[in-house]
Design a protein around this nucleic acid. Structure first.
Lengths: 224, 224
DNA sequence: AGTCAGAGTTGAACACGTTCAAATACCAAG
DNA sequence: CTTGGTATTTGAACGTGTTCAACTCTGACT
């Protein structure tokens, strides 16, 4: 407690050095080279010690996950501050993600594999990821709230979560996208966003409104 | 060549016995217990021999995949033969999948994990899976063609692939569904199908048609 | 100072998927 | 029947993520 930083006990230092070592190796050599033994070596600890702090390699990867999330939140500030048109705001936020995630694309395939297992803490639907998920949905809430979009109340409340689902779909496409600079994913965003906008504006048509209500009801039903 | 069955050479027998052994172990003990060593033992061959016929464990699992696919195709015949309403046909085919897949639900999480990696042959988008994917899309083409649905030509041609995507989404929900008998997935199907139907019928509205054309254009763009 | 419970740390060991040089079985040609 | 090449089969060995009994260190209490 004499230390100004309450969290820099020996244990906390060890934990951080393991994370740092993992980051370095993930960046330099990709997923396959970053074995638990290599990470432990790089951090100057034993492999057993790494497991004392991170109960699996997946939990270690989670730090990586959080880092991308934080970088996206930061990169999304520019479009959120600079535009009030719904399409511009949504496109800006989605493209910001593609920009931020670009360095991790090669790594992402392996990462994604682990995230896809339902029982994995890395799953975007898991309890462990709820903080990151809520943050991402909150980002989309700002996309909607700061825009000129006019919607029925029920839909407007659900829209951020739906946009997050859209983003998950784009991530799925992105993971499979082998084009240079993930240009095809950027094209997908460019094409998709105006369509979403037009679909949302159509929801005010009398014949469409009933279907929208059903969809909102469906969402409520499938939520845990 | 003296044998009546041209495909029952020694090699073919070995190959089949490995598949059979894998099936038995997957069924009885799940994914984790079915190690390559256990499979080889059960088949009465060496582990190296199993790799002579299947270049990885994933390729061995592919046989499992194909089996579910075939069972679904068979189970889907009843609803396809017995109904001409689009909703009934689609719901019948989707629920047939849930029925067929139910025994594999516990196994599916691990299976799904591998399938999610883009480079995996098990990925539903991969080259190795194209045959199964085409078969599944063909099933949905029959759902559409045999129904009373009236649609613009462009949309009608793309619809089977879109319905396959819908099915992938339902599979994603199903994998995460821990309710008994996957009842929540069945509820999801029951609720979703009429909404799809209503949405499709809305595409004939003048204001909606333009958006539909954009969506069809988008699909053409993102296809490899 | 001495003690001791618990936090922190170690590295050998385990089971796994996968590889590979070597051994064996098979079969057409001489 | 022998030969030689190809197809098939073997099992030890490798590197991986993970576990665990045993060890060392720390610091609060006598």
């Amino acid at each position: 407690m004499t230390d100004t930083s309450a969290r820099s006990s020996k244990a906390e230092q060890t934990r951080q050095s393991i994370i740092d070592a993992a980051m370095r190796l993930f960046r330099s050599g990709g997923y396959d080279q970053a074995t638990m033994r290599a990470i432990a070596d790089e951090a100057g600890v034993s492999v057993g010690n790494a497991y004392y702090y991170f109960s699996s390699k997946e939990h270690l990867i989670q730090a990586y996950y959080d880092q991308i999330q934080a970088a996206h939140a930061e990169a999304a500030e520019a479009p959120l501050a600079g535009a009030d048109g719904f399409t511009d705001r949504l496109r800006g936020v989605l493209l910001a993600w593609v920009d931020v995630a670009e360095p991790y694309h090669e790594f992402a395939g392996k990462f994604f594999k682990n995230a896809a297992e339902p029982s994995s803490p890395l799953s975007p639907f898991s309890e462990d990821s709820s903080a990151a998920r809520e943050a991402a949905i909150e980002l989309h809430r700002r996309v909607v709230d700061g825009s000129d979009l006019k919607l029925a109340k029920g839909l407007r409340e659900e829209l951020p979560e739906l946009l997050w689902l859209l983003q998950m779909g784009i991530v799925l496409f992105w993971v499979h996208d082998t084009s240079t600079g993930q240009q095809r994913t950027r094209d997908l965003v460019d094409q998709t966003v105006p369509i979403i906008d037009r679909m949302l504006r159509l929801t005010r048509l009398p014949g469409v409104r009933g279907v929208v209500d059903d969809i909102v009801g469906l969402i409520h039903m499938i939520r845990p």
